[in-house]
Simulated scan of single mutants.
Amino acid sequence: MASAAFEEIVEDFEFLDDWEDRYRHVIELGKAMEPLDDAFKVPANKVHGCASQVWLQPAIENGVFRFDGDSDAMIVRGLIAVLRALYNGVAVTEVGGIDARAELGRLGLHDHLSAQRSNGVRAMIERIRDVSVERT
């Protein structure tokens, strides 16, 4: 059920031999992402439960979910980019049906993120799901 953009990340990870290279790739994904406009870095968009500062700005247009995001930590910015690849362009009614844990497991992220980073990813996923439910 993953998007083509997410499948591309999965394929990229298959070619990277070790976690250090994968970690660098996640950071590069974050660097390639457009920064979130400061006007959206407000308390209402802040994700709680993350060790670093994280903001998600969701939008639903014609029943399609997408979000932009930002963080003050490079790896977290990269994780936001991965989540954007997973969720952006999905029908808002299907967001809750995505098994993000399983999809991210295909990248081996659970095994290589600190407990704090894993909690932060969970908090971002919960926020995405909550917003999709609120707006359906």
Rank of each mutant, 00 (worst) to 15 (best):
A91N: 11
C50Q: 03
V54W: 01
T93K: 14
Q53W: 15
E126A: 15
A32Q: 11
A115H: 15
L79C: 07
R84G: 07
L16A: 10
G105A: 01
G78R: 00
F67Q: 00
E34H: 11
I75Y: 05
C50E: 04
L86I: 14
A59N: 14
N119A: 10
E7G: 05
I60F: 01
M1K: 07
W19I: 03
V82C: 00
S118I: 11
N45H: 04
A2D: 05
M33N: 10
D70M: 06
F13L: 06
I9W: 03
S3Q: 00
E103M: 01
E14F: 09
E103N: 01
D70Q: 07
S132D: 04
A5Q: 07
F6D: 03
G105L: 05
V76E: 08
F40M: 11
V76W: 05
D18W: 08
H48M: 11
G120Y: 00
G96V: 07
M33S: 12
H25T: 02
T136V: 11
R84N: 07
A102Y: 02
F6E: 01
D21M: 15
A51R: 13
L83E: 07
A73M: 02
L83P: 08
G96A: 08
D70V: 05
E61I: 06
L86M: 13
L107I: 04
V95A: 03
H48C: 13
L79V: 09
D70K: 05
L29I: 09
N119Q: 09
D17A: 10
R22S: 07
H112P: 08
V95L: 02
R66K: 13
V64G: 09
A91I: 11
D72N: 12
H48R: 14
R22L: 09
D12Q: 14
I80R: 02
L107T: 03
R101K: 13
S3N: 02
N119E: 15
R66Y: 04
A2E: 06
G96C: 06
H112F: 06
A4H: 11
I98G: 12
G96N: 10
R106C: 04
G89C: 03
V92D: 04
M33L: 12
M74P: 12
Y87M: 05
T136Q: 12
E14M: 15
N62K: 08
S3T: 01
A123L: 05
I125N: 04
A32Y: 06
D72F: 03
G105T: 04
F65S: 01
N119G: 15
R135H: 14
S52E: 14
A91Y: 11
L83R: 07
V131K: 12
G96I: 05
I27Q: 07
I128W: 02
H110T: 13
P35G: 12
R129S: 04
G30R: 02
R135A: 09
D21L: 12
R127F: 14
W19Q: 01
D99A: 04
A39V: 14
S52N: 09
A115N: 10
E28R: 13
E61Q: 08
V90G: 05
L104C: 02
E61N: 08
D68N: 11
I98E: 15
L109Y: 06
V54A: 04
C50A: 06
